[in-house]
């Protein structure tokens, strides 16, 4: 028991750091993921994750594997894609999904081009899949700061954000908060993806955001309940994923996301709120 669950963390500093980094991401990114899911923007998260790549790549070109440069580059690229696609949607006939897809594909191609012409394949793998087992102090501080900013902002923004998700027309009719809310929320998405990519890579970062949120939908009815369930799923996935990667020498990022995937699968089948089993059972009454 000890060997299985605790010894890796007790013996190795890098495992403790990895766990701490993943917990920070779990707390910061999954509530954002819950709102992405509720706004039917799950795939937007995915698009944004691809969009930050060239920024990170340029940062990498300028100063190698530097935390600061890659973070700032990723933020700039992510915000640029978010703003440009929002702008195109507003001034042309193109819908938001199409304009976002166009910009993130351009951005992704640019990113892969930059990384592969100047760096080695190892570098590309690092950017795409992260290095959760090599988080240094600066990276941990960054991840924890992003999680704190994210949670605090969500707390302040909670009411307008719920309204913006549930009934944007109403929010626009009673106040000018709609645009501010939308923009701040997109900033949080980009911020968390940039944080997540240091640990899990640009491709996997969105996994820890969306999969726990999708799983949580089957366990809770209220938004607060969903956020709590999503954080729990993300933390458990991080723990189990890291242990699996340690004991079976698997790459840790994908291991964590796959465990989250298993949680999603189990929730889909056994979740009490609209899961397959719950739907199949005879209704106790019409009151739910």
């Amino acid at each position: 028991m000890w060997d299985l669950f605790f010894q890796p963390f007790a013996d190795f500093g890098f495992m403790r750091r990895a766990l701490m980094g993943c917990f920070a991401i779990s707390i910061g990114a999954t509530p954002v993921g819950v709102f992405l899911m509720l706004r039917r923007m799950s795939l937007t998260g995915d698009a944004m994750a691809h969009a930050i790549l060239p920024g990170a790549a340029v940062g990498f070109l300028v100063s190698g594997l530097s935390l600061g440069a890659m973070t700032i580059g990723g933020l700039i690229a992510g915000m640029a894609v978010a703003l440009l696609s929002g702008f195109v949607t507003r001034v042309t006939a193109l819908r938001e999904d199409a304009s976002l897809a166009a910009f993130y594909l351009i951005s992704l191609a640019l990113g892969v081009l930059i990384v592969s012409t100047r760096g080695s394949n190892v570098d590309l793998m690092h950017v795409l899949f992260g290095t959760v087992l090599a988080l240094d102090n600066a990276a941990l501080i960054l991840l924890c700061s992003i999680a704190s900013v994210s949670v605090l902002t969500l707390a302040v923004l909670f009411r307008p954000l719920v309204l913006e998700c549930a009934d944007p027309q109403f929010l626009r009719s009673v106040s000018g908060f709609s645009a501010v809310t939308h923009f701040t929320f997109l900033t949080l998405v980009v911020l968390n993806l940039v944080g997540g990519f240091h640990a899990l890579g640009t491709l996997m970062a969105v996994g820890i955001m969306i999969l726990p949120a999708a799983a949580a939908r089957f366990w809770a009815v209220s938004i607060g309940g969903m956020i709590a369930a999503a954080i729990a799923v993300a933390m458990l996935s991080s723990l189990i994923g890291l242990l699996l990667s340690y004991h079976y020498s698997l790459p840790s990022g994908p291991a964590i996301i796959l465990v989250a995937g298993v949680f999603y699968g189990v929730s889909l089948v056994a979740g009490p709120v609209g899961g397959l089993v719950a739907r199949g059972l005879p209704r106790r009454s019409l009151e739910i």
């Binding site: 009934d167 027309q169 209220s222």
Partner: peptide
């Protein structure tokens, strides 16, 4: 009150939550 409000009916809100939004002018975001 729009003809087809774009309220997301699958959104986890109760009747009470939705009605309470009417107080926005008085209570604002915070």
């Amino acid at each position: 009150l729009p003809q087809q409000s774009d309220i997301d009916r699958s959104f986890p809100l109760t009747v009470m939550d939705l009605v309470a939004m009417g107080l926005w002018r008085e209570i604002g975001p915070f």
